[in-house]
Design a binder for these strands. Sequence first.
DNA 1: GTATAATAATAGTCAGGGAAAGTCAAAAAG
DNA 2: CTTTTTGACTTTCCCTGACTATTATTATAC
Lengths: 152, 152
Amino acid sequence: MARLSDLIESFIKEMMDDMNGAIEIQRNELASRFNCVPSQINYVISTRFSADKGYYVESRRGGGGYISIRRLNTESAGDYLMHIIASLGEKLTQHTCEIFIKNFVDYDIINEQMAGIMKAATSDKALAGVSPEIRDEVRTNILKNMLMSLVI
Amino acid sequence: MARLSDLIESFIKEMMDDMNGAIEIQRNELASRFNCVPSQINYVISTRFSADKGYYVESRRGGGGYISIRRLNTESAGDYLMHIIASLGEKLTQHTCEIFIKNFVDYDIINEQMAGIMKAATSDKALAGVSPEIRDEVRTNILKNMLMSLVI
DNA sequence: GTATAATAATAGTCAGGGAAAGTCAAAAAG
DNA sequence: CTTTTTGACTTTCCCTGACTATTATTATAC
């Protein structure tokens, strides 16, 4: 069962690749293309394209409304990474972490192999020994430190 | 009577042979095929498909969740890595860990950038939130998982 | 004509239900 | 005693729908 959210996510990303990093969509149109309720689009955007993941989202309601999503315009990988590091929250679940890492690949900051290493290092499996109460904080800390090593 | 866990184990292994060493299953589906509780699948996976035995397991909860199991290809990355993974102790200090990582660079298994990431992920700084009693075990676990991702 | 009011066309929010997998300890089997 | 099996409970993630908010357009009043 392919998850609809994942399909929508990659649809948007492909569209964005074609459109040079900036797109404008209509929520209802996209929803009907994927045969889902409009609010699912909001779900995808908030879980995959939030500001802290390096995207800038604007929207407008009413007649002729739209949602525009842009890849953050960063001069260098370093800028982008600093932005991410600065805006990382305290706690990241494994899944959220993976979304971040996937974005690094999209931004051509790391390759698939490194993404694999990062995912491995921040997986629940790797952190199984850490008590659940603090696991997400530890995970965040590990991710931050790995990213720092890329900036330096 | 053959034990159920053994049956499930061999079922998964046959499936994996057919699928070129990598499968994706649904826990509930597999459980109902064998007429057992879902958590039995977890038991089989943790006792038969552990990292030590050369398997890499990932999973995801929620709608459309799955469990993926991959058999690590010992030939592709050379036996060296598998050997290292298997021979890593329970506890590694940051310093010991760095020595290992440096060796990987010397053996051309990873490049400097990856070494940086690995060191960062296993540093005391990254693991500051983890209590000292278990920190070295967690560190080892993280390193193992990162190395495993290279063997895939 | 202009100002205001109604209507239509969008998008946003939030809570809840459902669909998975994970955990852990007790019971059962060997 | 060790390994397996079970099941109650938890956690994570996805999807939906009712309700709300905002903007544009059209109708009405003056």
